[in-house]
Design a protein around this nucleic acid. Structure first.
Lengths: 207, 207
DNA sequence: GTCTCGATGTATCGACTCGATATATCTGAA
DNA sequence: TTCAGATATATCGAGTCGATACATCGAGAC
């Protein structure tokens, strides 16, 4: 799901890898912190798939794209050329821009409804980009999440009950806190669902 | 940290892989769900390191919670009746037992204080096994966690403030909920710290 | 002036984890 | 009897992580 996050950020504006990592970390919280070891390979995958392209200059400048050689010496040469000519602080930056194919891929990844394999992080990500979903898709996302959390809560409560005697106070505290956190999440989701429904009602009343 | 979880469970009783996975899932909640693709390699690593050993038979009578118990010897007998000579259970069960080296490794892993690399899951795991730590180590664990969460909260609040205008309502909702969850965690940790301190005081008063 | 330190920036490596899948046995209900 | 579903071990490819390498830039120390 890292691809989704990258494309979502590049939809707003073109960015280079380092900046992308910073935004991922402090826009989506500690949940979706990303290491360079996955970010750079992901960018290369996206580039190979034609979903993003590299522009030469920084985000603000008028970008002139250069065919990527992929060779190290080529990159170095390009860097030296930029240094000599421009005077900009480019520092070997590779600024990425989303392509139309990338836009399509973003829509596809965002709407994918494999409810089975939805983990916490990917839900958080989808919700953060929910603006790009249709109203009914948004509701579906929230309701699938609610169902998942309710199921999780049931399991957790069973586990707490089963472990009441077997577990010591520390393990019990962990289990109970995890249960509480799930309850908290459920009530949050339900508030979001209500807001979503009332928004939908409003749209129906005055189209 | 999967090794720590495995050793911690095997400390209580000997178990086979499948049962180990079930316990990991419903003792430590959805946070530390484990796949077979990591469990079996981890078991092999531990076996190779001499931390666990394979016993031929199933867990001894007192140990088993799931109702497969009584049939184990029956299964093996039936297998032997069908196929002469094989020393193995027809289901291929491999029951693991912790060794003294494994005990030592458990202590070492549990007490390791690389506070920098402490993620949520490993903290949860350490706390669940906190019974095996000395009182001061327990307090240290909790206080490092509190510091980490406070730091995280500060970052999250900065991000929320910075994104108040830049982010749409969905991304903002995600960021705010993440902040709330961190606050909730902090107050939980602080309750645990207080309990820990009062326990310590009690021990000092009547040794 | 220059020197060092920490932030910026791209990139790779090995170790680890995940989800999917293969294989086989046992249990219980139709 | 048969057949679905739980039990049980194991491997594979793909993706992720933390550590590390290497280099530049800006700012403050001296």
């Amino acid at each position: 799901m890292l691809e989704l996050a990258i494309l979502g950020l590049l939809k707003e504006q073109e960015l280079h890898g380092y900046e992308l990592k910073k935004r991922l970390s402090d826009t989506f919280g500690p949940m979706s912190r990303v290491s360079f070891g996955s970010l750079y390979p992901a960018l290369r995958r996206l580039e190979k798939a034609g979903a993003v392209e590299v522009t030469e200059a920084g985000p603000s400048a008028a970008a002139v794209s250069i065919p990527t050689t992929g060779s190290l010496s080529g990159e170095r040469a390009a860097y030296r050329a930029r240094r000599a000519g421009g005077g900009h602080d480019s520092r070997g930056r590779k600024v990425y821009r989303i392509t139309p194919e990338g836009q399509a891929l973003f829509e596809k990844l965002l709407a994918a409804e494999d409810a089975s394999a939805e983990d916490d992080r990917s839900f958080q990500l989808r919700l953060a980009f929910a603006r790009h979903l249709a109203a009914d898709q948004r509701l579906g996302l929230l309701e699938r999440r609610r169902a998942q959390l309710i199921e999780r809560l049931a399991r957790a409560r069973t586990a707490v009950r089963a472990g009441r005697e077997r577990l010591d106070s520390y393990a019990r505290a962990v289990a109970e806190h995890s249960t509480e956190a799930t309850e908290h999440d459920i009530s949050w989701i339900e508030r979001l669902i209500e807001v979503e429904r009332s928004d939908q009602l409003e749209r129906e009343l005055k189209p």
